[in-house]
Write a protein that binds this DNA or RNA. Structure first.
Ligand SMILES: Nc1ccn([C@H]2C[C@H](O)[C@@H](COP(=O)(O)OP(=O)(O)OP(=O)(O)O)O2)c(=O)n1
Ligand SMILES: [Mg+2]
Length: 1278
DNA sequence: ATCCTCCCCTAC
DNA sequence: TAAGGTAGGGGAGGAT
């Protein structure tokens, strides 16, 4: 190992840079100061100890403890823990690091992880250096003595508007300056910021009058109050402000907060505040009473203590029980310990988790080190903790070494893994900067070619990002499955499926025979759920062509050959089972893996193959399952209840599973393992036992015994955070132990829903149904790798490129958004400029900024210019030096379907003609709203709302076969699930394109692969061929279409297809039926046909399409491309509207409303200077009346009216309730009657205003009339 | 109570 | 040299 370590030294993982280490040793962190002199090593807590890391950070000294999962008991996960230490006072605003010279040094000690309680928690925050200790508020303030202002907390108002606070701020400078911790430079910025902040947020606070005289005992203290507190937040705030302190309403800028006041903390918060001074409210109260700022450390908030009284857990950790005083004393220890930890590169520290808010590490793949940012290394699983140490040892100074562990590390050759794999799961990165990267970055040419500023960086990155593929594939597979199910329900028998059916296993057949199939748990009989997962997927696929490597320890990663030597930071996507015996895990860095197994072999990624084989895999599953939930490219959950029931065997489930395994093996050449049980959670557990290459049926009677052997982390959905919480609050992470806890206790510890889930899981209960048709809620794009900018221009350019990528993704699925969230990762001041992981983001502070997004007329948009501009604006507002950026992400939410309501023709003429008859002429049902929209288009402003992308007017609808002309209103009126399914159809043609690539290039494929693989030329073809049912004509064309003319791409969904004869036969009046909103039509139709609607069946869930094949068939056949009649092409007027749906009444309603509101706003805007067109008013009236009549849209309708009124008041409020002049009244009466038009006529302001209000009243009356008839009451528009 | 927002967390 | 993405579930806490 030693040798290894040497090599590694400069990289992450076990090794470290000696220079770096040296530096670390010298560095004294603030916390250290406290400890100063402390030789004692704090012991780290048991399971997870924390390491402290010091970075080379410059400035602020801080200590952080990292969690280590080491000994961690139960939780095997790597990550965890929190670190403490104070936060760096650096404000995000600040740009660069302070001179390193200023930093204090600290020693690094490795503590031995004694097993104390695991939390080191922030208690350990070490006080700042002596001077700093005083912290912001030096203990002895001159003024302190003075009059203690009111006693405790009285938040009573002190001087209302005093500006004491303001003064305090100004004075803060002094305090801060006084602190060594904060660099002077900092300080200035800090003070400036505070001033602004205060001006902004505290105006409302009533403050002292002349602050100056008062005791400004809290001068320099900037407080954030977390959660509920004894004296209320308001009271405390008052106190703070009155006494010269600063109250921070948000923890946005942690760096600006000197102390956090709280009475209770959640584990997540504990982590978040690790680096901060967390104090009890009494500190403030007592200080005020004494008239002086008391030492904060005497009031350190301790977790265990009061948090959840309910938790029995409290007995556990000693640290929690320590008294404040003790705390202070021990803090040094904690500190030291934490520090020590920091040095352990091999250990996982979960940096991310620490982020609380800022540390970005959170994302990390759990297995490796979940949170740990690469910078820190990752964590090792419990089993592996030993090893992790070993790895560390190599590079670490003696101090860090832990003899025993060290020995444990088997530096064995590939031959045989020594013992079980103690593995560490996550890649561990050394603390120090990546010297390779640091060197490379010196070269401008290299930077220009390899970092985020390089041309084509985004596309190239995505083409090689396994995680990007994984996410993309998942989305695609969901679509594939939903699509296939629709077809099956519809009765179609796709080619492939037909073939499979010939084998006796047809999904369709299964469904026909078992109505219960999907979804809801059937009563009575138990379900049979199988969790099917490939064994070491990437590796297995890679070995198909490398038979000679089978049986050996192999991993898939980018680094090939000897690249990177022993220090490659390349992550291992998948490790063969042989490699796992050495402790190598998926997600670990290659360097780490090499330490565990020097002879490890690496093979490249073959993304195309993964996708291809996955399709074969899914095809088989679809032919066999009653229901299927896509989990990932290599994993799925299937409900095979009916199929198993039909089997004649002594062990049907097992036999069935083996049959599936054989089929998959036959089709792909790779093995899958299958876990069988009566629900999802148990099936996943069974898979653990089934792997590798096997199947296992976990029966209910075996569950109790099994639980005793499992850890909470073994449950799907429960990761390191949950493990930590369990350990902290419940004292154990063992499921057998947790089984003794009451449901309430679990809920208190983990949250209501999560606690409930756990409680049930332990008892083998999991009622969740397989999900296969959920609509997408957001579209995002983010890159946190290789981000290195030198100036704002580069950053801005990049942001716009990302915006373009997001736009492509939105367009691919015909969605537009109304909300945008920008995520920014900023290098933590203490983190090295070059993260341990090559080009990685390292430890970061993350910022999220959300903002409404809107295009023309306030509607949803997918315009890259708008998205890019807004994103850049948000980023710029954060004032982060571009050099410090390490990650950027743009997420779009509040998605609306992009639908073209009007035929794309040109202008109004067509529109009119269409409006007038096209729909009607086709016998289509008109939706009032739709018509309203159409009308609007024709109005005055139409020109003002050109299609987003300037659709080629020439595009004939023909281009869009089938779905292309969906009637928007109809489409929107569909229940979510149906709509989602439908949209999938469209998506098939335009799946999110691989980053950067033109849709034209490759139709259906997701990210096309790259790297080693040849371009994925035929994914589309393959997909089509393999898909249960191919629709060649659609996919390709659509895709193309989309590229060519985005705007026009809208779709119009035809209303349900029913002929008059059938309606009559069903007792429905065709005339009436035709006028109903599509949604209602569907309901009535369904009811008439004897089909229970989902609404009636299970309102809450009503998510899945009915299973009954026949019925569904009818439902879906409407969309059958082959039979669909394509309506004329709509004009280029895109509208995003969502009508109420059956499924999620609330949300949909809200969304619908928003959309309708936008529409209304557009309407009004278009007619700012015009009297509304009679037709529009009538249409709107009709629409709203129908809503009321149907009873389904009353709320939305009235809400819409309220909204309308708001808008009117805003622009024409003057005319509300105005007494009309005779002549005006006369004209308006005629107008209402349809005998007068004001088109082209210049009208008076009065007439204009009154006309709108008349229209409002008119519609209101009509709605009330309907309500009166139907319900005997009137509506409230309040 | 219920919603909405802002995260955290989890999974592959 | 490496490619640390992404979407959805859920909880805490403020707004309503
Ligand atoms: N941190 C990770 C985890 C997984 N994957 C990819 C590679 C895996 O092959 C695939 C499937 O993940 P699994 O968790 O199913 O792991 P494997 O299939 O490799 O192994 P097994 O399922 O046998 O445990 O996802 C990845 O790239 N990075
Ligand atoms: Mg797998």
């Amino acid at each position: 190992m030693a040798a290894l370590s040497a090599d590694d030294s400069f990289d992450y993982f076990g090794s470290e840079d000696s220079a770096f280490l040296r530096e670390l040793q010298d560095v004294q962190l603030p916390g250290d100061a406290r400890q100063a002199g402390d030789t004692s090593k704090p012991s780290l807590l048991n399971p997870d100890s924390e390491l402290d890391q010091s970075g080379d950070s410059d400035l602020l000294p801080r200590n952080r403890t990292l969690d280590i999962t080491f000994g961690g008991p139960p939780c095997a996960q790597p990550s965890k823990r929190r670190r403490l230490s104070d936060t760096p006072p650096v404000s995000p605003l600040r740009s660069h690091d302070p001179p390193a010279a200023k930093r204090p040094r600290h020693d690094i000690n490795l503590s031995i992880f004694a097993d104390l309680s695991s939390d080191i928690s922030f208690n350990e925050l070490s006080p700042p250096l002596p001077q700093s200790d005083a912290d912001p508020a030096p203990v002895q303030l001159p003024s302190q003595v003075q009059s203690p202002r009111k006693a405790g907390g009285s938040n009573t108002k002190r001087n209302p508007n005093s500006n004491g606070a303001y003064n305090a701020l100004q004075t803060d400078d002094d305090n801060y300056l006084g602190e060594d911790i904060y660099g002077a430079a900092h300080f200035g910025d800090f003070g400036e910021y505070m001033r602004r902040k205060r001006a902004k947020l505290q105006i409302q606070n009533t403050e002292l009058d002349e602050g100056t005289e008062r005791n400004q005992i809290f001068r320099g203290v900037s407080i954030y109050i977390n959660g509920r507190t004894k004296p209320s937040v308001q009271e405390l705030r008052k106190l703070i402000v009155d006494y010269g302190g600063v109250f921070q309403a948000y923890l946005d800028k942690k760096a600006l907060v000197t102390h956090v006041i709280t009475c209770s903390l959640t584990p997540a918060k504990v982590r978040e505040f690790q680096h901060m001074k967390v104090v009890r409210p009494e500190w403030l109260v007592d200080s005020v009473q004494k008239g002086a700022l008391l030492p904060w450390h005497d009031y350190i908030f301790q977790t265990g203590g009061r948090i959840e009284g309910s938790m029995q857990g409290r007995t556990m950790q000693p640290s929690m029980h320590t008294f404040p005083a003790q705390r202070a004393q021990t803090s040094a220890q904690g500190f030291a310990s934490s520090r020590a930890q920091s040095t352990m590169y091999g250990v996982q520290t979960t940096r991310a988790s620490t982020s609380g808010r800022n540390y970005a590490a959170s994302k990390r793949p759990r297995s490796p080190s979940p949170d740990a940012d690469y910078g820190f290394d990752e964590s090792f699983p419990d089993d592996d903790w030993e090893r992790s140490f070993d790895a560390d040892e190599a590079g670490l100074p003696p101090v860090y070494r832990i003899p025993q562990w060290k020995s444990t590390i088997p530096a064995k050759p590939a031959t045989k893994p020594v013992q079980p794999p103690p593995a560490s799961k996550a890649p561990v990165y050394a603390n120090g900067p990546n010297t390779h990267a640091a060197r490379a970055m010196q070269d401008p040419a290299w930077r220009a070619a390899h970092t985020s500023v390089a041309p084509g960086f985004i596309e190239g990155y995505y083409r090689n990002s396994r995680l990007h593929y994984l996410s993309t594939w998942k989305t695609e597979l969901r679509v594939l499955v939903a699509d296939a199910q629709d077809r099956a329900e519809r009765g179609d028998v796709p080619g492939v499926e037909a073939r499979l059916a010939s084998q006796g296993l047809s999904m369709r057949g299964a469904k026909l025979t078992s109505p219960k199939g999907k979804g809801r748990a059937r009563e009575g009989s138990q379900r049979v759920i199988m969790h099917v997962d490939f064994d070491a997927f990437f590796v297995s696929v890679g070995l198909l062509d490398r038979p000679e490597m089978r049986g050996k320890p192999v991993v898939v990663c980018h680094s090939q050959g000897g690249a990177g030597g022993a220090s490659s930071t390349s992550e291992i996507a998948s490790a063969s089972y042989e490699a796992r015996e050495f402790g190598i895990k998926n997600g670990m860095s290659l360097q780490q893996a090499r330490q565990l197994c020097p002879s490890i072999s690496t093979i490249p990624y073959e993304f195309e193959k993964y996708k291809k084989l996955s399709l074969k895999f899914y095809t088989i599953l679809m032919s066999v399952a009653d229901d299927l939930q896509a989990v990932s490219v290599d994993e799925a959950l299937i409900d095979v209840t009916s199929s198993v029931e039909q089997m004649v065997s002594s062990n049907p489930a097992k036999d069935f599973a083996e049959s599936v395994r054989a089929q998959v093996k036959e089709a792909t050449g790779c093995t899958v393992s299958i876990g069988i049980a009566h629900n999802i959670m148990m099936a996943r557990l069974a898979t653990r036992k089934a792997k590798p290459a096997g199947s296992f049926h976990l029966t209910e009677d075996e569950i109790p015994a099994l639980m005793g052997t499992l850890d909470i982390k073994d449950l799907h959905g429960f990761g390191s955070a949950a493990c930590d919480k369990a350990q902290e609050k419940l004292g154990s992470t063992n499921l057998g132990e947790l089984a003794k806890r009451s449901r309430g206790v679990l809920c208190d510890a983990l949250g209501k829903g999560t606690g409930e889930t756990l409680w049930k899981a332990i008892r083998g209960i999991d009622e969740r149904k397989l999900e296969s048709d959920k609509p997408r809620k957001s579209v995002s794009c983010e890159i946190n790798y290789g981000i290195r900018f030198e100036d704002n221009e580069q950053a801005e350019r990049f942001v716009h490129q990302m915006a373009e990528e997001v736009t492509r993704r939105l367009q691919a699925i015909n969605k537009k958004g109304r909300s945008l969230t920008l995520k920014v990762m900023q290098r933590d001041p203490e983190a090295p400029v070059e993260a341990p992981k090559f080009m990685g983001h390292g430890i970061c502070i993350t910022h999220n900024r959300q903002s409404p997004l809107s295009g023309a007329l306030g509607r949803a948009t997918d315009d890259s210019n708008i998205i890019g501009a807004l994103s850049w604006k948000l980023l710029r507002s954060m004032n982060i030096p571009p050099q410090e950026l390490r990650g950027l992400g743009i997420q779009i939410q509040k998605l609306d379907d992009e639908v073209v309501v009007v035929p794309a023709g040109q202008g109004r003429l067509q529109f009119k003609s269409k409006d007038g008859k096209s729909y009607a002429g086709q016998g289509r049902i008109h939706d009032p709203l739709e018509r309203l929209v159409a009308e609007l288009d024709v109005l005055p402003t139409p020109a003002a709302m050109p299609p987003p992308h300037g659709a080629p007017a020439t595009r004939p609808d023909v281009d869009l076969p089938n779905l292309s002309q969906l009637d928007q209103s109809v489409y929107n009126a569909l229940p979510d699930d149906i709509r989602a399914e439908l949209s999938q159809e469209y998506k098939r043609r335009s799946v999110t394109p691989a980053p950067g690539h033109n849709a034209a290039r490759e139709p259906s494929a997701g990210p096309s692969n790259v790297g080693t693989d040849a371009p994925a030329p035929n994914l589309a073809r393959i997909t089509r061929a393999l898909a249960p049912r191919s629709r060649p004509h659609i996919s390709p064309q659509k895709r193309l279409y989309g590229l060519l003319a985005r705007p026009a791409q809208k779709v119009k969904i035809p209303p349900p297809r029913v002929d008059e004869a059938e309606l009559v036969a069903l007792g429905l009046d065709p005339g009436v039926f035709a006028v109903l909103p599509v949604k209602i039509q569907r309901e009535q139709l369904a009811q008439a046909r004897g089909v229970a609607t989902r609404l009636s069946q299970r309102p809450a869930e009503a998510v899945k399409p009915l299973k009954a094949p026949k019925k569904l068939g009818e439902r879906f056949r409407y969309f059958d491309p082959l039979n669909e009649i394509i309506p004329p092409p709509p004009p280029p007027f895109a509208v995003h509207v969502e009508l109420p749906t059956l499924r999620k009444p609330k949300k949909n309603a809200r969304q619908v409303q928003e959309d309708a509101q936008a529409l209304l706003a557009a309407w009004l805007q278009g007619f700012q200077a015009h009297v509304p067109h009679r037709r529009d008013v009538d249409h709107f009236a009709k629409y709203l009346s129908l809503c009321v009549e149907s009873d389904l849209g009353i709320e939305q309708a009235t809400a819409l009216m309220r909204w309308w009124r708001i808008l009117l008041r805003r622009s024409l409020g003057l005319w509300e309730g105005m007494e009309l002049d005779e002549d005006v009244e006369q004209m308006l009466e005629e107008w209402v009657a349809g005998n007068r038009t004001f088109e082209g006529v210049r009208v008076s302001e009065e007439l204009l205003g009154c006309a709108w209000w008349v229209a409002f009243e008119e519609i209101k009356c009509k709605m009330n009339e309907v309500a009166r008839k139907r319900y005997g009451g009137s509506l409230s528009f309040r």
